[in-house]
Structures are given as structure tokens and as C-alpha cells.
């Protein structure tokens, strides 16, 4: 979905064409990185954020049927690529926000260089292996199982039918390419990087960690593990909420984001 306030553009990074949506006219830029399911386009929460910020929503290289640089095998590779994307877009003093796999990529980017990141926001982020529970299986299971894991209570999800309807041929191809790319990046170690908790020690950027209390994919304990590793960080847990707070609890999500960014 692209609203009248956002447009789809392309930019070349290290010889690879990257597509992105951009909306809003705020002085401060916000870069949003999607999860393993791919770029769902310009969402309602992007629209909300664009009232205050200029919001960039790129398709991560190789996702949504876009070109895959053949040297990108890991999330760390993707983070290096994205820092070049940030340069190409000319972002400075920007807000970096990532959800799930996108949160993992964001945290690796900030670990590499957070000098131009004003604020970091991680939403139900992958990347750290839980100590008590485990990250649930998202590759070797059916689409139905994946959907059931994603939301705590589907009745809280606006337009839930959009997630259960039959896909068009193009959408099937897009989903296939997204899952293929996520498999390349996240298969082993499964959705985590053993070294990430140590990388994170380097981050000095103020960081907000948001977690759905009932996340059935990445357990909420991982939120605490991120908080323990990032010096200037706050953990906000949203109750009665699964893996996607921005969709399942949009008001609570925006409230914690606005509270953090207004400080």
C-alpha cells in the first residue's frame, strides 16, 4: 500500500538497485527496516510516523523480488550494505527503527557505527539467542502456522482478512523470494548471532526496545537480553500483544515511540 503521502523510489547502492518508500516532510529522518516476511509497503504506522518525520522504508536487498547482491550471506553483510544505503540516501542524525529481523539488522548497524544515529528503536528484534525459551520455527512450517504465531489475538488486527486471503501470482512470487532471502540470512545460527550481545556493548545511542508480551516467535526474555547489552536503553513491554506490536497494538506502539522520541 502506498498512500498519497508516500512514493516509491529507487536508488543504486554498490551497484545494486534498492527500492524504498518515502513519505513525510519532517526535518528528522526515520529509517524503518522490515522483518523476515519482507516489505509490506507503506503501513498505517508509517503514515503516523511521517506526520513528524521523513520516513524511509526500503526493501532489504534481495527481498520483495529485488536484486540480491551475491556477497550478502549474513545479517552482518546486510548491515554493512545498509550503512552504504544510509550514505546514499544522505541520512544523518536519523532515527533507526527495525522490526524482528529488521531489528537485528538495525542493532548490527548501530554496533558498527552509531555516530549518525540519533535514536535506535528495536521491535521484537531477532539476533540474540534466548537463554530460557527458544525462537520458534518459521521456515520449516506451514504458512498457517507462521500466521498463528505472529499475532496474539487476531481480533485486535485491523483488516486481518488481508493476511488470510489467497495470494495473487505476483504475491506468491514475492513471498517466495522473501522466504528464500530470509533463509539465506537466518538459517544457521537460527535467527541469532552468537557475537551480537558483545557487539551491542559499543552502542551509545539512546535505544528503545519494544516487545509484545506474548510474542510467540521471539520470546520476551530477548527484550531483556537486548536491554542488558545496550547501555542507554529502555524496555517497553506491550501487554496482550504478539510479535508485531505496530500492527496488533498500534495506539500503544505509537505512545511508547512518541514518549521515547519526545525525550
Amino acid at each position: 500500500m502506498v498512500s498519497s503521502t508516500a512514493s516509491r523510489k529507487e536508488i543504486t547502492v554498490l551497484g545494486t538497485t534498492v527500492e524504498y518508500f518515502v513519505g513525510g516532510t519532517g526535518d528528522t529522518s526515520l529509517l524503518f527496516l522490515h522483518g523476515a516476511g519482507g516489505n509490506s509497503g507503506w503501513q498505517k504506522y508509517h503514515e503516523e510516523l511521517s506526520k513528524e518525520y521523513t520516513v524511509y522504508v526500503p526493501s532489504q536487498a534481495g527481498f520483495n523480488g529485488t536484486e540480491r547482491p551475491d556477497w550478502i550471506y549474513t545479517i552482518t553483510d546486510m548491515a554493512h550494505f545498509n550503512l552504504q544505503l544510509v550514505n546514499a540516501l544522505g541520512l544523518s542524525d536519523y532515527i533507526l527503527m527495525g522490526s524482528s529481523m529488521g531489528g537485528w539488522i538495525s542493532s548490527e548497524m548501530a554496533s558498527m557505527d552509531d555516530s549518525s544515529i540519533q535514536s535506535l528503536i528495536l521491535i521484537d528484534a531477532a539476533g540474540i539467542k534466548p537463554e530460557k525459551g527458544e525462537i520458534s520455527e518459521i521456515f520449516m512450517c506451514s504458512a498457517q502456522t507462521r500466521l498463528e504465531q505472529r499475532f496474539y489475538n487476531p481480533s485486535q488486527v485491523e483488516n486481518y482478512e488481508a493476511y488470510t486471503r489467497e495470494l495473487t501470482q505476483d504475491e506468491v512470487f514475492t513471498e517466495h523470494s522473501n522466504r528464500e532471502m530470509a533463509s539465506r540470512l537466518c538459517w544457521r545460527p537460527y535467527l541469532h548471532n552468537w557475537s551480537l550481545p558483545f557487539y551491542l556493548k559499543k552502542i551509545t545511542t539512546p535505544t528503545l526496545i519494544i516487545w509484545g508480551e506474548n510474542d510467540a516467535i521471539i520470546p520476551v526474555e530477548c527484550g531483556s537480553l537486548f536491554q542488558a547489552s545496550i547501555a542507554d536503553s529502555t524496555l517497553e513491554i506491550i501487554s496482550n500483544c504478539g510479535h508485531s506490536p505496530a500492527i496488533e497494538k498500534p495506539n500503544e506502539f505509537m505512545a511508547v515511540v512518541n514518549k521515547f522520541l519526545s525525550n
Partner: peptide, 10 residues
């Protein structure tokens, strides 16, 4: 089994 077992993407 699901296609994810017999024919996973990629």
C-alpha cells in the same frame, strides 16, 4: 507435509 519440507524456497 507442508511444501516448506519438500520444496522450501530456494
Amino acid at each position: 507435509g507442508p511444501a516448506e519440507f519438500n520444496d522450501p524456497p530456494g
